[in-house]
Design a protein around this nucleic acid. Sequence first.
DNA 1: CAATAATATGTGCATATGCACGTTAAATGC
DNA 2: GCATTTAACGTGCATATGCACATATTATTG
Lengths: 127, 127
Amino acid sequence: MTSFYEQHMRQIGLKLSQYSVLANISEQKQTLVQLADRLDMDRTTLTRSLRPLLDQGWVVEAAGDDARQRWLVLTPTGSVFRQKAEAHWRDAQLALESQLGREFVANLNVQMQQALSQLKPALPEAN
Amino acid sequence: MTSFYEQHMRQIGLKLSQYSVLANISEQKQTLVQLADRLDMDRTTLTRSLRPLLDQGWVVEAAGDDARQRWLVLTPTGSVFRQKAEAHWRDAQLALESQLGREFVANLNVQMQQALSQLKPALPEAN
DNA sequence: CAATAATATGTGCATATGCACGTTAAATGC
DNA sequence: GCATTTAACGTGCATATGCACATATTATTG
């Protein structure tokens, strides 16, 4: 399934993980750790997925009162690109649904969410 | 979920992928490609997962009439170890079921199988 | 039967990922 | 107010994976 999405996102030069980040940054500023928590991904992996988005100017880092933190903000350019990316994401979604059935995919999403929330507390090495 | 199984298999020094191979070799000889197909995994990844099993003497390579092929066979020692490994696998399965519910896991298995079989023909880059 | 195609396999290389460690800065304890 | 602990972050290193390529062997075709 991921390779399905990868194929579609490649058309605009994004890895799936990069889209995932872009889609969750939005305009409200967040810290790296906050974002990593939200995405259920490793903090250091996020650092690396983020780099290209910073290089492209879609995301910028802003300093706050706490000098350790780096606030991440989606730029206007990033916002425009994000909309474009979302269209491709929806294409992928539709293509996937045409293979598996709309309900099948919807069910799977619910179940994966459920599995994640129930398994996460049981894993000591959880992100 | 994989990390769940990894934890349990680590107790007998196996990676999940290695167990997966061991569990599917059985005593009937197969080629690398046949086994890779059965496991839906990349041929070259299988080569590498197999190495430790060969080193431990749980699997041996036998030559046949076709000099290109290497027939893979589970040894008696391997068979004994496999049974031990299967016990740990079942432990992991039970632990997982205790977290998610027995039916939930069963359903997931069915759905994953279904998704795989329906998606695979649609992917040009499928293994 | 020679030339070409197909098959079975290993290996180099690039990439994604997570953990251990280091560094800087804030918070807390006494 | 200084010492210690905690927090936020980057980076080195190890590993798993898949693709591209190389090699050897069998099949096919003219």
